[in-house]
């Protein structure tokens, strides 16, 4: 292990970290949006849309991200739909994540007791108020451990981006190993940089979990 070499590689890994970071988080942000919408559609049994949502969830939960990316990045251009690698990465991660977030959030929605909704209604709240002030806060706080697990999972999944030639951490490590054959140094840096991305999420997740879970709801 040569520390000098590792120091030389730091800037390259830094750039890759930035790419993994912004593509990853943009994808995750979108996956939350998709997940919330899909889960609400399914929870409130909106006709037709709930079928589509169900199909989407099954399709993306049962296929690997790598295959999804290959299809989007290499397959779709043949039908005239060319997307940049960055956009494909974000889209793929958002679609995959959306399906997972939807399931997590839906099981959160299911834990909201009927008595909570009935009590809110009998206090004179309108439907929108019940959703906004009672159902959503409870469902979200119950879902937080699941969300954290999903975010960590999705950030780990970004490691396949190198397959569609995005210069992420994996790509950089692979490239440098191929060029200079400093395998141990590159892999060590790779591990360190993934920890830099993932550890804060884990800590923040457990902090949030403690923060919003004041007590059982409706017990």
């Amino acid at each position: 292990m040569n520390l000098e070499v590792m120091k030389d590689y730091l800037p390259l890994f830094g750039e890759a970290l930035w790419l993994t970071f912004w593509i990853g988080w943009l994808g995750i942000l979108l996956s939350f949006v998709i997940g919330f919408v899909t889960a609400l559609i399914r929870h409130y049994h909106i006709p037709v849309l709930q079928r589509i949502a169900g199909f989407y969830i099954e399709l993306f939960r049962n296929t690997p991200l790598l295959v999804q990316l290959f299809f989007i990045y290499f397959g779709l251009p043949k039908l005239g739909l060319s997307l940049s690698a960055e956009f494909c990465g974000i889209l793929g991660l958002a679609l995959l994540g959306g399906a997972y977030m939807a399931e997590t959030f839906r099981s959160g929605l299911l834990t909201v007791e009927k008595t909570q909704i009935e009590s809110a209604m009998s206090l004179g709240m309108k439907k929108g108020q019940v959703l906004r002030l009672v159902v959503l806060p409870e469902a979200i706080s119950v879902s937080i451990p699941g969300f954290t697990a999903n975010v960590i999972f999705l950030l780990k999944e970004t490691s396949v981006f190198s397959a569609i030639s995005l210069m992420d951490l994996m790509f950089t490590a692979k490239d440098l190993i191929g060029l200079y054959y400093k395998t141990a140094e590159c892999l060590t840096l790779l591990v360190i940089f993934y920890l830099i991305i993932l550890l804060p999420v884990s800590f923040f997740g457990s902090y949030l979990e403690r923060r919003v879970r004041h007590a059982g709801f409706g017990d």
Partner: peptide, 9 residues
């Protein structure tokens, strides 16, 4: 914490 891809490598 380690992506499976990293472990593979």
């Amino acid at each position: 914490f380690m992506p499976q891809m990293v472990l593979l490598f």
